[in-house]
Design a protein around this nucleic acid. Structure first.
Lengths: 251, 251
DNA sequence: TAAGTAAAGATTGTCAACAAAAATTGGAAC
DNA sequence: GTTCCAATTTTTGTTGACAATCTTTACTTA
């Protein structure tokens, strides 16, 4: 069984390595493995991805890996430089700001659309989702809670019925974990506050402007938290265990 | 000299075929050739792209072509289906609606940002651009005018300083020609009305809301024109010269 | 010790050939 | 004339090998 090419936390692997079967699934396997690893904060930005290692890991040929990396690069999750290879993308503070700005304006538009078109079925899905999210949080299943918290914004986009905007939102959400390279993001206010719930209530009232305002506030708070996390991480960067969290290699 | 793989209008080629040199430029050459051909309405949506033909045309190997097609697929310009190959993407009316909706909301946000941040240099660039656009229109250089007309919306995004949103706008604009498959889009109101000029004026006043409103109106009119073009094209589809405009092949 | 340099190793970029799948062609039956 | 089916051709998918490039290592020199 090939070893995971990602440095992982002890007892937690990036994904189950596939058999050595190849095919179009192999490409997807690599893509989703990398995405999952990024989302789970198991790879740090700047980590170099080596084609051959990924190929062995996924039981695929280098061509499939190459395609997968191209896909990831287009999604902004990895950076490709000619003759140098692929690394997990690193977001500068400025890029992070732009991503948040983009999320704010696009999600505001989506909420505005949704407030006008939300039907009973959609409302029911949102309510059920909020309950599920709350339950995960209450039960202390933090990883799941964080996952659902991200999914909420995607669900809102999906319900708006615009696949194009939904795709943009998905890309932006997937890049979120690149913005902070601390392993464990503070979860306190993630789902503790009922920001999502209040957004849904505004939507149910048909008040798109208020829903957008709440969402904007919510994202701004997230951005603030992230920035403080980032700053504190920079201060203590020398004290961490290099084996657990791979440091970005320059160049 | 290899023949163009695109059916072209007489006396007008998709691009100058490159020498048989290979390399990373080959991939870009194919990508830009296809993009240009789509933008110039020289390939119809649904046209099948055959790897070997593209390879001969661009003087590249199939690998490079394959990467290029993947890039184009990510941008939504071609569709890839396994074992079947690549075709120029076809937009359903619903997709077209979604693309316009996305443009409307994203460009509105961009204009809102820009109204607050536009400086003298930016203002000057916009004015110069408007002049250039007008000049091209007056001189009857229609292809250039159409090109500049699209570039205007991109320039606005660029000036907003948000690369993420700019990328989204670029993708959306590039897909525009897929929405109508008539060869010659009626140009009458494209640059004839001074929609762009009025948008810039609103921006200069710092009135982002008005700029956004004007832009939305502008895009809605474009969408209306496109829809009528599309409908009339559907009526006369049997009467056209099959050699000039390749019909989409089903499957 | 530090800096510079050349060899060795590792990694990516490219290609051509082969295998698998799909599209086309031709012909037979109705 | 139309429909079905098999053989052929075309096209895509995959692999492995080789060349070009970058990175590391080891060594020399100041």
């Amino acid at each position: 069984m090939p070893e995971s090419p990602f440095r992982t936390r002890p007892g937690r692997n990036a994904a189950t390595p596939g058999a050595s079967m190849s095919g179009p699934e192999a490409e997807e396997r690599v893509v989703s493995a990398v995405v999952e690893a990024i989302l789970g904060h198991r790879i740090a930005p700047g980590t170099r991805l080596i084609e051959r290692e990924l190929a062995n890991y996924a039981g695929a040929s280098r061509s499939a890996i190459r395609n997968g990396l191209l896909t990831l690069a287009h999604a902004g999750l990895v950076e490709l430089s000619p003759n140098k290879g692929a690394t997990i993308a690193m977001c500068s503070p400025e890029e992070a700001r732009q991503i948040f700005e983009a999320r704010i304006v696009i999600e505001a538009s989506v909420l505005d659309i949704l407030a006008r078109t939300l039907d009973e079925a959609g409302r029911a899905r949102l309510d059920a989702f909020i309950d599920e999210e709350h339950a995960a949080y209450e039960a202390g299943r933090m990883e799941e809670a964080r996952h659902l918290s991200r999914r909420f914004h995607l669900l809102v986009a999906e319900l708006s019925g615009n696949d194009v905007l939904t795709g943009f939102v998905r890309d932006l959400i997937n890049r979120q974990p690149l913005l902070s390279w601390t392993r464990e993001v503070r979860q306190s206010r993630f789902c503790g506050n009922d920001a999502h719930k209040r957004i849904v209530e505004a939507l149910a009232r048909g008040d798109g402007a208020e829903a957008a305002r709440l969402n904007t506030e919510h994202l701004r708070e997230l951005e603030r938290e992230l920035r403080t996390d980032r700053e504190s991480a920079l201060k203590t960067v020398g004290a961490e265990d290099a084996d657990e969290v791979p440091r970005p290699r320059p160049g």
